[in-house]
């Protein structure tokens, strides 16, 4: 009986706490300052512009990447996943295909001050 009570109370409390932690984490992700990141257009001339600059074709607005991806509260909690999928995903794909590619794993290879052209 005691065990059943613990389960009946504990499980909803655990689910609720997890949900609250998730919401809190989204809030933290939205508000935390961005890490320094470097990007050299000169190294990406073989990639079509619209692969990254999707707003040229889907008309989601002018401006720089981070105008939306960092400042728009509806998407800014996803910034890490979106940019890692786009940048790192492409690098991994190219490296796996035996082509020259950018960083695939080390954080500080991309997360460094941007002084590239």
């Amino acid at each position: 009986m005691q065990r059943l009570l613990i389960i009946l109370i504990g499980v909803p409390v655990l689910i609720g706490a997890t949900w609250l932690a998730h919401l809190g984490q989204l809030e933290l992700r939205s508000n935390r300052p961005m890490l320094a990141v470097t990007f050299a257009h000169a190294d990406h001339t073989t990639v079509s512009c619209v692969v990254c600059h999707h707003n040229f074709i889907d008309r989601t607005g002018p401006g720089l990447c981070f105008d939306c991806h960092k400042n728009d509260p509806s998407v800014n909690a996803l910034i890490e996943d979106q940019f890692h999928d786009l940048c790192r995903g492409c690098h991994v794909e190219r490296q796996s295909a035996g082509e020259e590619a950018g960083p695939t794993r080390r954080c500080d290879s991309c997360h460094t001050a941007d002084d590239a052209p």
Binding site: G24, Q25, L28, R29, R32, L35, R106, C107, D108, H111
Partner: peptide, 11 residues
């Protein structure tokens, strides 16, 4: 890779 420290933060 000291940037990994970011992965130990709550976010």
């Amino acid at each position: 890779d000291s940037t990994v420290l970011e992965y130990l933060m709550p976010a």
